[in-house]
């Protein structure tokens, strides 16, 4: 009898397992028919792989293009800064910005009238525009980079013109003493004026008071600004 019992148990167990398997499988297959078939899933997986690869390629391309864009931007900023420095240089040459540097200070003052020296003619008692013009000419010739007279920056359109007993510079009336500031190599500027037979001597002979000084740091105003 125990042998028979164990046989019944084994038969029942096997039958139960078979029933379980069949029903589970039945459910799984039924479920599958509602969902996505394996083939479709595989197809989608392949597609997904392809798209992922494409995405990777595209992201590589993005980084490449970003790199190029950055380079171009860098080039652009370099070009802009080059243009900016060029513009600064041009503005400096045009006298549109305040400049500073080493140079000389030349002061011309009218002769004292109460010296009693009758040899000085009255028209010489005032400093002629020509003196200033020749001073400018000499200074430019000696390599001056920027010049101002009594705070009036000398630019391309600047006039130095006698107007009665005054001199007009940049349409502004300037009066003695005339302080001429020139930026450049101080020694050369000094030499060009102080050379024997040069302007300094000439002015002294005329009785004009001349003072010439070197400066390490001069600041010249921009055109149109006081």
């Amino acid at each position: 009898m125990p042998q028979k019992t164990s046989m019944y148990v084994s038969i029942m167990l096997v039958a139960a397992v078979l029933g379980l398997m069949l029903s589970v499988q039945f459910r799984a297959v039924n479920h599958a028919s509602n969902g996505i078939s394996i083939d479709r899933a595989q197809e989608l997986t392949v597609e997904l792989k392809q798209i992922n690869k494409e995405k990777e390629d595209l992201s590589i391309e993005i980084s490449d293009l970003t790199f190029k864009l950055n380079q171009i931007k860098q080039g652009q900023t370099e070009a802009i800064s080059a243009l900016q420095s060029e513009l600064n240089k041009v503005r400096m040459n045009a006298g549109l910005i305040t400049v500073s540097g080493p140079g000389i200070e030349l002061v011309l003052d009218k002769p004292d009238t109460n010296t009693g020296d009758t040899q000085i003619s009255p028209e010489l008692m005032i400093i002629q525009d020509e003196y200033l013009l020749s001073a400018l000419n000499e200074l430019w010739g000696a390599g001056a980079e920027a010049i101002s007279i009594n705070g009036q920056r000398i630019i391309a359109t600047t006039e130095v013109r006698q107007a009665g007993s005054f001199i007009n510079i940049n349409l502004n009336r300037v009066v003695p003493p005339y302080q001429i500031l020139a930026i450049g190599n101080p020694q050369e500027l000094m030499d060009t004026l102080g050379i024997t037979g040069g302007l300094q001597e000439y002015w002294r002979d005329l009785g004009i008071k001349v003072s010439l000084e070197k400066h390490d740091d001069l600041t010249l105003p921009a055109y149109g600004k006081k």
Binding site: A15, A16, L22
Partner: peptide
């Protein structure tokens, strides 16, 4: 057993 397994 079959019915039982199927039920489960």
């Amino acid at each position: 057993g079959l019915g039982l397994g199927a039920l489960i």
